[in-house]
Design a protein around this nucleic acid. Structure first.
Length: 681
DNA sequence: ACCCTATTGATTTTT
DNA sequence: TCAATAGGGT
């Protein structure tokens, strides 16, 4: 087996790099550890944490001090906690969790910052209303006040009709809006945007008054990691606003800086390239203040600029935001064969050029194929053949959108039918979190409801399910053995042909049976007000099609029934996806979603366009490797694409194939410089 | 045929 | 939110 023999020489060098980090820790020298994909970055981070525990632990304990380790995702937090083992000395968490923990007790100061923010926002909106051309008609109104007051009085009607088409909306608004204002309705989307802004101003002003009057619920700021929307007028802040407030608070109050520094003398940041600018600025403030008051503080960043694939991340900008960082680089690769390393080195094309740490690192296969859309399936089959793909040797296929992930993983209909509901059409940002998040606490209301049903159905169908996982402990403890058996028999009689018939049958039995335990289990599971199929349908309708017209109710219900009639196979595929159960031989992911993962066999489906950029990948290959001639804007796009390509290609350990769906003749030179030659498929 | 405006349609990931 | 397209006016 390849990738197993580490030479003594490399081993020594690797240890020396680790010692450099230790030295920075000892000397409280802020540092940045740069390591390409598969270099063992997390390993270096964990070793550093262990070093601090072992050499500074007693002193930290004595002073009741702790080490902070912040990560970008909950998944990363859990991984580090697991690999580090049990320790109370190190506080591992996501950035947001830690920052909120640090600032949440300074409510008086936070509310002050909130007041400033509300005033800023009001000014900003007023500015937009006065200057933007789409509000020209509003600007020319002689009596804005009357218009504003009419719209404020008819808020409910506005929101009720907001999602209707342009002409219906116009008719509805004209019912209460005086004729002199009708010209504002010429462009309906501008009108909606205008009124939305006016309402916001109104909300913010009312909020300011309530804070002023010291009203209940307006004395503190709230943050909930599960929701990412600012409801500033209700004192509720989003993830980004949390970072903003934290920065402002820490910037403003030296005492808070000192408290943090004295409590947490070591701060380590995982995946620094993806952390938000505000976070680096906060750490920079702390670092500078620690020098000023001569209290010791160590800040260590771990990451790789070439793996910055999220818009908010600082990327290379970190060197401007936090100066005088000691640069430590590790150019070994512990993951891939030399064939893969060669390609990813060419993609990043910068000072970090990796070499394998192994003596036996060859034997990988990398190929670029040019093909087309219709041949994706047959291409995958060819790869399965060529690489002997089976249950123990899986193929991981990377596609660009979640929609395709849903389709290829076998639950296209569930995804599409949920997507085409009123709720998800108006809140498209929520689709992927609420339907596809593998963090189950993030599932939307109805997806979560469906999930609980499938889970229960699956448990009933599977004879190996232990009773303890099927029935709540409180319930089964009170049952005799005979009663328990009766209950299970009763479950087994529930029809499982489709999710729809499962619900119907389950609820019919609920209403027929006098078995109280059965009722209790169903009540625990569904938590409904009423246990009939019609009620379930109304419940779903209320959530996914809230506020639709009378005339559309029947059709919407039918669409929900269609959703419940999607095949069991699809529901199982969705269930497995959410639980990361990889039961198929080929697993599909988005490019972004594979960050931090590694796979033996990787196929990447690629095309010119992505999101609103018609030529994302084609432009990259056209420009490669001459990035010098690019404008700032083009260079930013080039780097974005380069990083995404780097992250996806560097997942592969042995076998890597790119399958490109568009005509590549215009940029084949760029492709050949990276992948050597292009195969026709 | 051309221009301007309104409407529709597409959109990754994490907190 | 933004870009592509449809539609209306000249």
């Amino acid at each position: 087996m390849a990738l197993s023999i580490v030479s003594d020489d490399a081993s020594v060098q690797e240890q020396q790099i680790q010692e450099q980090i230790f030295q920075c820790i000892d000397e409280y020298k802020d540092s940045i550890f740069n390591a390409g994909a598969g270099a063992g970055k997390t390993y270096a981070l964990i070793e550093s944490l262990k070093y601090i525990i072992n050499t500074k632990g007693d002193r930290l304990n004595y002073h009741n001090q702790h080490v902070i380790c912040i990560t970008y995702t909950n998944v990363a937090t859990n991984e580090i906690k697991e690999r580090l083992g049990n320790t109370t000395l190190v506080k591992v968490s996501t950035i947001h969790e830690r920052l909120w923990d640090l600032i949440k007790d300074y409510q008086k100061q936070l509310v002050q910052i909130h007041i400033e923010k509300l005033n800023e926002e009001i000014n900003k909106i007023n500015q937009e209303l006065e200057t933007e051309s789409k509000f020209a008609r509003y600007q020319n109104l002689s009596d804005k006040e009357t218009f504003i007051s009419i719209m404020n009085q008819n808020r409910e009607a506005f929101y009720q009709n907001k999602d209707k088409g342009a002409s219906d909306f116009r008719t509805a608004i004209k019912l209460f809006l005086d004729e002199q204002y009708h010209s504002l309705l010429d462009n309906v989307s501008n009108f909606k945007s205008l009124v939305g802004k006016l309402y916001k101003i109104q909300d913010f002003q009312e909020c300011l008054e309530k804070i002023e009057c010291n009203e209940e619920n307006y004395k503190t700021i709230f943050y909930d990691a599960r929701f990412n929307t600012d409801k500033l007028h209700r004192m509720l802040i989003s993830h980004d606003t949390l970072l903003e407030y934290a920065y402002k608070l820490i910037n403003k109050y030296d005492l808070i800086k000192q408290i943090i520094i004295d409590k947490y003398p070591y701060i380590l940041v995982d995946e620094y390239q993806d952390t938000h600018k505000n976070v680096v600025q906060i750490l920079n403030l702390l670092s500078q203040y620690s020098t000023q008051i001569n209290h010791k503080l160590f800040v260590g960043y771990f990451g790789d600029t070439a793996q910055n694939i999220y818009d908010d991340g600082v990327g290379k900008d970190i060197f401007n935001l936090h100066q005088n960082l000691e640069n430590i680089a590790k150019n070994f690769n512990r993951r891939s064969t030399i064939e893969v390393i060669d390609v990813i080195n060419k993609i990043r094309n910068d000072e970090i050029q990796q070499q394998s740490i192994y003596e036996d690192a060859d034997g990988g296969l990398v190929k670029f194929y040019s093909g087309n859309q219709d041949d994706i399936d047959s291409f995958i089959d060819k790869c399965k053949d060529d690489w002997n793909i089976n249950q123990d040797n899986k193929l991981h296929c990377l596609v660009l959108t979640n929609e395709l992930v849903a389709k290829y993983n076998g639950f296209e209909n569930i995804y599409q039918k949920l997507k085409n509901t009123k709720y998800y059409r108006s809140k498209w940002q929520n689709i992927n979190t609420e339907i596809l998040s593998q963090d189950l606490s993030k599932l939307g209301k109805i997806p979560n409801f469906l999930y609980r049903l499938i889970e229960f159905k699956y448990k009933i169908e599977n004879p190996q399910t232990p009773i303890t996982s099927l029935i709540n402990e409180k319930i089964y403890k009170q049952l005799t053995f005979k009663q328990l058996r009766e209950l299970i028999e009763l479950f087994k009689t529930i029809d499982t042909i489709s999710l729809k018939s499962f619900i119907e049958s389950m609820l019919n039995k609920y209403n027929e049976t006098d078995n109280e335990s059965y009722k209790k289990v169903i009540e625990d599971l569904l938590e409904l007000a009423d246990y009939t199929f019609d009620f379930v349908l109304d419940y779903m309708l209320n959530s996914l099609f809230r506020g639709i017209d009378e005339t559309e109710i029947e059709e919407s219900k039918n669409r929900l029934i269609e959703l419940l009639e999607v095949s069991n196979d699809e529901y199982i595929a969705w269930f497995n996806y959410l639980n990361k159960i990889e039961s198929e031989e080929v697993i599909y992911h988005t490019y972004h979603g594979t960050k931090g993962e590694e796979y033996d066999n990787v196929v990447i489906i690629m095309q010119n366009n992505f999101r609103r950029n018609d030529n994302k990948f084609s432009n990259f290959f056209s420009s490669y490797p001459n990035e010098d001639g690019l404008s700032d804007n083009d260079l930013a796009k080039y780097t974005d694409t380069k990083n995404l390509l780097y992250v996806s290609c560097s997942r592969a350990k042995y076998n890597l194939r790119i399958f490109y769906l568009d005509d590549i003749s215009d940029f084949k030179d760029g492709i050949e410089s990276i992948f050597n030659n292009i195969c026709e498929y």
